[in-house]
């Protein structure tokens, strides 16, 4: 198998972009009124990806550790903020919880990934590896955290009476909240477990497909993918457990009181 890949010209990209017209046409014909959203989404896809592409070109070329670290930090920050923002039930400190959890889990697992995958390189911050690795980990961790947080808020509101009943009967805050906490963590973990179940059968992961398209031997690409799946799964688990436990600590004080009103605003 040869390495190297077919470079796309901007003309080829433009042809692909014109396919969005099919969506537009359908929207008009079926009166879905999605034309403007579609146009905006298409434009954003192009602009955002071009932007990140040029930034990455520049960072790769500059090859300075602090620039790469800054890129990684911005990515992490945005992931943390997005995860908390998606929750329907926000409370004071939710953003802090989310950012801390995303940061700790993804950087811990990310550095392990770099060490294993890119350990043979002369410097750890090799952006060709660190940026996409962290990106994949973040994307999935974000999902887990967002789902876990949302589920925690939702169950605590719907089960408030039950939680308080347990407290009045002598439960510690942990005994009262345990089921809700477990449920939230489980909810956050479902997507990654599902995707591990069907990976390779229902979907071919983007990274693997990309590597094959770029000329890698399929088995080599698969090995990468297996490693990545486990990194992603463990980062998601850590992040979800982290954010749910931190939030539990905020919503239940050390006098075993449930501060339910924090969830109402």
């Amino acid at each position: 198998m040869t390495t190297g890949y077919v470079q796309l010209t901007f003309f080829q990209v433009a042809i692909a972009a014109s396919l969005i017209l099919i969506n537009g046409l359908l929207s008009v014909l079926l009166q879905l009124r999605l034309e403007w959203s579609l146009l905006l989404a298409a434009l954003r896809t192009v602009v955002q990806l071009l932007l990140i592409g040029s930034i990455l070109e520049w960072v790769f070329a500059a090859d300075r550790w602090y620039l790469i670290l800054a890129v990684l930090a911005v990515m992490t920050l945005v992931a943390g903020i997005t995860a908390a923002g998606r929750s329907q039930h926000r409370f004071p400190g939710i953003y802090c919880n989310s950012i801390v959890s995303v940061w700790a889990s993804s950087w811990l697992i990310g550095s392990m990934a770099l060490f294993i995958v890119a350990g043979q390189f002369d410097h750890w911050y090799h952006p060709q590896y660190s940026v996409p690795l962290l990106g994949m980990i973040l994307g999935n961790t974000l999902n887990g955290i967002a789902l876990g947080l949302n589920q925690l808020g939702e169950s605590l509101i719907s089960r408030q009476a039950r939680v308080e009943l347990a407290l009045t009967l002598g439960a510690t805050r942990w005994e009262a909240a345990r089921e809700v906490v477990q449920h939230a963590v489980r909810t956050g973990m479902i997507p990654i477990i599902n995707s591990m179940m069907v990976v390779g059968i229902v979907n071919l992961p983007g990274m693997m497909t990309g590597q094959i398209l770029a000329g890698a031997a399929p088995l080599d690409a698969v090995k990468y993918q297996i490693v990545i799946m486990f990194f992603i799964a463990s980062a998601t688990a850590l992040g979800t457990v982290g954010v749910v436990l931190l939030s539990y600590r905020r919503l239940f004080n050390d006098r075993h009181q449930f501060l339910h009103w924090l969830l109402r605003n």
């Binding site: 009476a161 308080e164 009943l165 407290l167 009045t168 009967l169 002598g170 439960a171 510690t172 005994e175 006098r255 075993h256």
Partner: peptide, 13 residues
Amino acid sequence: NIPQFRRCVVYLH
């Protein structure tokens, strides 16, 4: 020990 206290002072909703 607040759980212990609540066991002794039980609130009925």
